[in-house]
Simulated scan of single mutants.
Amino acid sequence: MKFEAVLFDCDGVLVDSEPITNGVLRDMLAESGWALTPAECVRIFIGKAVRDERALIEANTGQPLTEAWMAEFYARRNRELQARLVAIAGAHEAVAAAHAHAGQRIACASGADRFKVEMQLAQVGLMDWFAGRIFSGHEMPRSKPAPDVYLAAAAHLGAAGARCLVIEDTVTGVTAGVAAGATVWAYCPLPEQGAVLRHAGASQLFERMDDLPELLARV
């Protein structure tokens, strides 16, 4: 079945932002009294909006999650991303192949805030592919793992959820794509993570983003 639309997550799929963002978050949580290892920080927060984990953060720091704290997090995160961010290897080729496969109907549907998504795509030279077709979970009634952001992207492109392909890399994102009725393929550079992504509903795993063009050619 040829897909009517291809919907990409952003962080960890198109841009290698997650180690940077999680490093800033871990530093700030440590400064607030909650020490986490890098692996613990990734396990708890990957694929999620920081605000959605307010209760957990407040319970472990003993402090309220204030707007001032969030503003500092965004500022520090953005500085580090602007200094260090690169595209996932093969992302440009993957996006071009999806664009051709779906007759230009592609979108970026992220759980992150719009400023971050647009900044990142522009920084790595992907914005032209997605301009006008960027969707943020922060602007939806519910963010991932709810399907809202993927349903909004599919509706904008005039595609039925069941005829969409979602490209994700986290359990949270895979869950959202499946809930939207889409086929979900998971970018999984670490094979040991494959079982949990399969369990969440990913029907295809691939270890390199530049494998995606060949996979689409087989559909």
Rank of each mutant, 00 (worst) to 15 (best):
V86T: 15
A96F: 01
A91W: 13
A98C: 03
Q104A: 13
R79M: 03
G137F: 15
W69L: 10
L121E: 14
R76W: 07
A71R: 12
A68P: 03
C108H: 13
V86P: 00
A98L: 01
R114C: 04
L81I: 13
A68D: 15
R77C: 06
Q82M: 15
R114A: 12
R114Y: 07
G137Y: 08
A98R: 01
E72Q: 07
K116E: 12
H92E: 15
G103A: 11
A83Y: 04
M127H: 13
I134H: 12
F130V: 04
R77Y: 01
Q104T: 13
A98I: 02
A98Q: 06
L121W: 08
G90P: 10
R105F: 04
A98G: 00
Q82N: 13
V124H: 02
A91V: 03
A122H: 01
A131H: 03
G103D: 01
L126N: 04
A131Q: 09
C108F: 12
R79C: 01
G137Q: 12
A68F: 09
L126T: 11
R114Q: 09
L85C: 10
Q123T: 14
A97C: 02
H138I: 05
T66H: 10
L85T: 11
A98S: 03
F135S: 03
G137N: 14
A75F: 09
M127G: 03
L121P: 07
E93K: 00
A102D: 10
A122I: 05
H138M: 11
V124E: 08
I88E: 14
W129F: 06
A112D: 09
G137P: 09
D128W: 06
M127L: 15
R84Q: 12
S136C: 12
F130I: 07
A91M: 09
T66G: 02
R76Y: 01
R77H: 05
A71F: 10
I134M: 08
V86F: 10
R114H: 12
M119S: 09
E67K: 11
A89M: 05
F130N: 06
W69S: 06
S136F: 07
M119D: 11
R79E: 14
N78L: 14
F115V: 02
W69T: 14
A83P: 00
L85V: 09
Q82P: 06
A87V: 04
L85K: 15
E72Y: 01
R114E: 11
D113L: 00
R114F: 04
W69N: 10
D113N: 05
G90I: 06
A107G: 07
H92Y: 06
A109P: 12
F130R: 08
E72H: 09
H101T: 04
N78K: 15
